[in-house]
Every structure is written in C-alpha cells, then in structure tokens.
C-alpha cells in the first residue's frame, strides 16, 4: 500500500480546534481559580476573563456547528460499535507490540471508533452541560436585571456543581487527549497534522471500502 500526504484537516477545522483548545484551557484555568483551587489572576479578573472567554467559546461553537452541518462533517462523529473492540485491544495490547492501527484514517473517516464515542459524548453531553450551566451561572437570580423571570432558580448550588463536573470531565479529556495524540504513526504525526492539515496516510484511492461513500466528500460541496 502506498502512502501519500493527504490534506485531512481543513483550515477552518484547524482554526476551530486550536481556538477551542486555547479557550477551553483558559476557561479551565480561570474557572478553577474562581473555584478557589489556586490564585493567579486575582478573583475579580479571573471572573471577568472567564466570562469573556465563555462568550468567545459560545461564538466559536455557533460557527463550528454551522460548519459541521453545512459540510456534513458532523457525520464523522456518529458513534459506532464497529471495531470498537479492536481499537480497545490496540490501546491495551497491540500498541506495545507495534501492531498496526486497527482502523484506517481517511479524509472521510478521520476518527477511530473510540474517538467517535468520546467526541460524541463531549459534543452531546459535556459541552452542552458546561455551556448551559455556565449561562445559568451568569444569569442566575438576576431576573430583575436581565428580564428573564423563568431562570429565577432557588439555588446556585445545583448549577455550580454541574458546571464543576463538566469542567473536571473536560480537564480529564484534555489530559487523555494530549497523551493519545502521541499514538499516531509517529509521536508527533497527529500534532503535525492538526497544525499543517497534512498527514501521511495510506492512499485512500487504493482502498476500495470508502469509495462507495464518495457522495460524502466535501469536495463535491465546494
């Protein structure tokens, strides 16, 4: 099988990814300061920066949703049980024996089955919980100011604890993510791909299994 430099991550996708990475890191950093886990910016600035970054992330998410829907890229994230066992086996055993990756990475199927599950969970559960609880946190109990009577909730506790849980899950995700990106063809190949957009992959044209899905190709949409 021949290998070829493939343009796998489009520029918006890379921009979205890194912007999101910066914002989530910054939100976690300021957020845990507000949680009084440590002191860095000072409480007042931490709150102000956290709120600004939150609005930025929301704007970014709106753009990303639009991009995913219009390009059909959202389909990458639909979870599947196919090969999930093989992928787990790979991380637990195969990787130590230098076994090949059980799933092929292609433009049309960038994510392995475990990634699909994890990213789907993030998109459908963790990020929505984080954003919703975050917005409630900001607008909580200030109906007289914001004019939204319906969110006059009795206690902040519930909101705050959900927000914290989501934050902890995101931190754990980031830590794991940072490690797992080193398990590509080489330690840095995944990182390089996300920076440049190009990754050396098996030539998709030689592989027959994906050709049937040609109608998904983003090229057709452009």
């Amino acid at each position: 099988m021949s290998k070829k430099q493939v343009y796998i991550y489009k520029s918006f996708e890379r921009f979205w990814h890194w912007m999101q990475a910066i914002l989530i890191f910054f939100l976690a950093f300021t957020g845990f300061e507000i949680h009084d886990t440590y002191t860095f910016f000072g409480y007042r600035d931490a709150v102000r920066y956290h709120n600004v970054a939150a609005y930025m992330l929301i704007a970014l998410i709106v753009f990303a949703i639009f991009w995913h829907l219009t390009t059909g890229e959202y389909k990458q994230y639909i979870p599947t049980f196919k090969n999930i066992r093989a992928q787990l086996d790979y991380y637990i055993f195969g990787i130590f024996r230098n076994a090949p990756h059980p799933t092929k990475k292609t433009v049309l199927s960038k994510l392995n089955p475990l990634q699909k599950f994890t990213y789907f969970g993030l998109k459908i559960l963790v990020i929505p919980v984080s954003v919703t609880s975050g917005l409630l946190y900001m607008f909580y109990r200030y109906p007289s100011k914001q004019g939204v009577e319906a969110i006059n909730i009795e206690s902040l506790e519930f909101i705050a604890i959900f927000h914290t849980i989501a934050a902890i899950l995101l931190v754990i995700f980031i830590v794991t993510h940072l490690y797992l990106i080193t398990t590509g063809e080489s330690v840095t190949s995944n990182l390089r791909a996300m920076l440049t957009g190009f990754e050396e992959l098996e030539d998709a044209n030689n592989s027959t299994e994906n050709i049937a899905e040609k109608n998904l190709s983003t090229k057709n949409l452009e």
Binding site: H35, Y137, S155, E157, A160, T164
Partner: peptide, 8 residues
C-alpha cells in the same frame, strides 16, 4: 446558600 469560591 452556595457562594462561588467558598463552596464546593
């Protein structure tokens, strides 16, 4: 009541 920074 729950106060950010104090409570967790």
């Amino acid at each position: 009541f729950y106060m950010p920074g104090r409570d967790y």
